[in-house]
């Protein structure tokens, strides 16, 4: 069980970094002219020129490798429930790196989700 917790924490750390990078890429994608291209072509055309997409993909890949290891070390349920720490990570990472507001509704929602997951994981 300890091994599972460690693996999940390391996985979530990297996945959060990756998600922040993806969100940064999405913001940049939004700010750029599409030149009449469809959204998906716009994304594909940007894939090679956005370093944040590559850094993000690498971070997620590293996170995934730890995540797979976690998956095969415990029950799917436990691994998933432990993964809830991701929302706390994401809330603060999004605040500090992406300047997303932490408002009351969002905080209550995030805490309810995490509480729900702690409750289920503690059982």
């Amino acid at each position: 069980m300890n091994k599972t917790i460690t693996l999940v924490l390391i996985a979530e750390f990297w996945i959060t970094i990756g998600q922040v990078c993806f969100k940064k890429s999405a913001n940049r994608l939004n700010a750029q002219e599409t030149d009449g291209k469809s959204w998906i072509m716009h994304l594909l055309g940007s894939v090679f020129s956005y370093p944040t997409l590559w850094i993000g993909a690498t971070a997620i890949l590293v996170g995934m490798l730890f995540w797979f290891a976690a998956l095969s070390s415990g029950e799917l349920n436990s691994v998933y429930l432990l993964g809830s720490i991701q929302y706390i990570f994401a809330l603060f990472a999004a605040h500090y790196f992406l300047h997303e507001k932490i408002n009351k509704t969002k905080l209550i929602g995030t805490l309810l989700i995490t509480l729900g997951i702690i409750l289920t994981a503690a059982s």
């Binding site: 429930l81 969002k106 929602g109 309810l112 989700i113 509480l115 729900g116 289920t120 994981a121």
Partner: peptide
């Protein structure tokens, strides 16, 4: 029971 809390959390965030 925990899942019920999660459902409420999703409601608030959305």
């Amino acid at each position: 029971l925990g899942l019920v809390l999660i459902v409420f959390g999703i409601y608030f965030i959305s």
